[in-house]
Nucleic acid binder design. Structure first.
Ligand SMILES: Nc1ccn([C@H]2C[C@H](O)[C@@H](COP(=O)(O)OP(=O)(O)OP(=O)(O)O)O2)c(=O)n1
Ligand SMILES: [Mg+2]
Ligand SMILES: [Mg+2]
Length: 569
DNA sequence: ATCCTCCCCTAC
DNA sequence: TAAGGTAGGGGAGGAT
């Protein structure tokens, strides 16, 4: 197979020391033609070699000036870099940093100018850590903060040592499986099996269908006098699997790619019997089987899911492939009892869905419906853990917990002002309203797409640069394909994820706990051509100066879209 | 003030 | 083995 390489190339480094050596060697290879440029900042005459191996980059206002520092460093055997570059610069010299810069450079060595001056004065290289712009405690705390708060818990739960050991124990066959480096058609194959990719593209499809229905009056529904009906299929993927297997009635059932004990595969969906054991959508199969050993795991049936939602497209805001929001002005349920009439309609809709799909849908799970009177909402909300509010995920939940806010009731005790101060104007307002059962967001029945993006962060293991180039080409084709359907580009972004050291993802072939780097470029003319998108992305990738072996994901995003039919201004 | 850019976060 | 994608809201902080 073209582009394939020997298995040896995949063996992860045995220890960190070896990794560093390996990294240096590869960097040297990768940047061979840039070597000439490296020597540019080196002085023609040397007074000493105090700064041998040191390359500084100066930023912001500093005293002595950057020019002076450059002279000092170069005279004493070091280098000065005009531009910051992660792999060339060893130390950043600064006296102040914006928080954005600090974040960007949180793993770099950032020193005060005095480090240079004092080293020259003493005639030897002083420990940079004594001149660290941020004292050690702040620095490590900040590092810990970013590492911790940036990734969901499971990514941090395992130690590098443990994972390295597991990696070493893995049968060799597992290391030679197709990845981004070897698989001919990796992106297409991957997308064919990725549930999250399906979920996303189906949502886009449904949104288009809903927009075409042109229920223009929906936009005019008074948000304070309306009924919103929320319909969602019950354990959708699982229902589809179970409907033709009556023998599984009453059994805990879930959907996943892998059925193996200890698997790191995701449980996409599970039925209510399984949830009684504490199983949740998105959980790892290994964990699910521990909690429920007799769980029946069935494969995905993407074609079936698609057939179901395509045939029975929702009438209003498509939330996802199994879910919709329907908005009605109150008078739609008059005359008579609003609750009663809304209930009757809900019943009808659910019956129709069941007849058409043989799966159940509900407003009260599972397989139920409920008309929530504004009056009964408050006691429920007061007891509700904040995590259950829409818009409160892993991160906001943690920040709320830090403020000792656990429930809707706790939230309701905090003044609007305070919430906005802690969490921002908009987020604060949202929390304030939701805690009171108020949600006046109009349904989004139609909207112009603002971006088109593609991203793969699974199975990404490169050995050679040309493999990356090919991979970016595949992604660019995908972006172009989708773009042709819609608008044009003004701008593109490549973003990357890169781990700090050895491979230690909890998920087999996963991306692990990575840095996410991003770089954008504004095109002079909008495009929808794969060639242009590829060339630009490839150039941006080069600018990031990554070691290809470190890359754990690549994505391309197209922004500033404009319609191609209309005036292409 | 209001934009823009570079992120982070959330949902399915 | 395993398939950790994606659009859009929003915040921080600099540019205009
Ligand atoms: N982490 C997740 C969450 C959901 N899904 C998929 C499988 C689900 O069946 C479908 C719909 O998501 P829901 O949140 O509606 O979950 P279910 O329909 O499975 O269960 P519920 O009865 O709670 O709606 O999306 C997934 O693949 N991974
Ligand atoms: Mg559902
Ligand atoms: Mg749903």
């Amino acid at each position: 197979m073209p582009g394939s390489v020997g298995r040896e190339s995949y063996l992860p480094p045995r220890d960190f020391g070896e990794y560093v050596v390996c990294k240096r060697r590869k960097l040297a290879e990768q940047q061979q033609d840039e070597l000439a440029a490296l020597t540019k900042g080196v002085a023609t005459q040397c007074l000493s070699s105090i700064f041998r191996g040191v390359a500084i980059y100066a930023t912001g206002y500093i005293e002595p000036s950057a020019v002076k520092l450059r002279e000092l460093v170069c005279l004493h055997g070091g280098r000065y870099e005009q531009y910051y570059n992660r792999s060339r610069v060893t130390h950043i010299v600064a006296t102040t940093l914006t928080s954005a810069k600090f974040r960007q450079w949180r793993h770099a060595k950032i020193v005060r100018p005095a480090w240079i001056v004092d080293s020259v004065r003493k005639g030897r290289l002083l420990a940079w850590s004594h001149y660290c712009l941020y004292n050690a405690r702040e620095y490590t705390d900040e590092r810990a903060f970013w590492q911790k708060s940036r990734s969901p818990p499971q990514e941090r739960a395992r130690t590098i040592a443990k994972d390295a050991a597991e990696e070493a124990c893995r049968p060799t066959s597992m290391r030679s499986l197709p990845t981004s480096a070897t698989d001919e058609n990796f992106v297409a194959n991957y997308y064919a099996s990725s549930r999250l990719h399906h979920l996303s593209s189906w949502k886009a499809e449904l949104r288009d269908i809903c927009a075409k229905l042109e229920l223009s009056h929906a936009a005019n529904v008074d948000t304070r006098r309306r009924v919103v009906m929320h319909i969602d299929m019950d354990c959708f993927f699982t229902s589809v699997a179970v409907r033709d297997r009556p023998e599984l009635a009453g059994c805990p059932v879930g959907i996943s790619h892998s059925t193996v004990t200890g698997s790191s595969s995701d449980l996409a969906s599970c039925n209510y019997e399984a949830r009684a054991y504490g199983l949740k959508n998105g959980m790892r199969v290994g964990e699910a089987l521990k909690k429920c050993p007799h769980l029946v795991l069935l494969p995905y049936e993407f074609a079936q899911y698609k057939a179901i939602f395509a045939e029975y497209a929702a009438q209003i805001q498509a939330v996802s492939c199994d879910e919709a929001l329907l908005g009605f002005p109150l008078d739609r349920f008059l005359p008579g009892d609003i609750a009663e009439n809304a209930q009757r309609m809900a019943r009808e809709i659910r019956d129709k869905i069941h007849a058409a799909t043989r799966c159940t849908a509900s407003q009260a799970k599972p397989n139920g419906q409920h008309f929530l009177n504004p009056a009964e909402a408050q006691p429920v909300l007061d007891r509700l853990p904040v995590k259950r509010l829409p818009g409160v995920g892993w991160s906001l939940d943690k920040r709320l917990k830090d403020k000792h806010i656990e429930t809707g009731g706790d939230l309701r005790k905090i003044a609007l002002n305070t919430l906005q101060c802690w969490f921002g104007t908009s987020t604060g307002q949202m929390l304030y309203s939701f805690a009171r059962g108020i949600d006046e967001r109009p349904l989004q029945t139609t909207s112009n797409r603002q971006s088109i993006s593609t991203n793969v962060s699974w199975g990404v293991r490169f050995v050679h640069t040309h493999q990356v180039e090919k991979f970016i080409g595949e992604l660019a084709e995908e972006v172009a394909r989708r773009t042709v359907k819609e608008g044009v580009v003004g701008r593109m972004i490549v973003y990357k994820r890169k781990p700090d050291a050895v491979d230690h993802a909890y998920k087999v072939f996963g991306h692990g706990d990575c840095d996410i780097l991003q770089q954008g470029h504004m095109l002079s003319t909008a495009t929808q051509e794969a060639g242009v998108i590829k060339e630009t992305s490839w150039r941006l990738f080069g600018q990031m100066n990554l070691l290809v072996a470190d890359v754990r994901g690549i994505g391309i995003q197209l922004l500033k879209l404009a319609s191609i039919n209309k005036d292409s201004g």
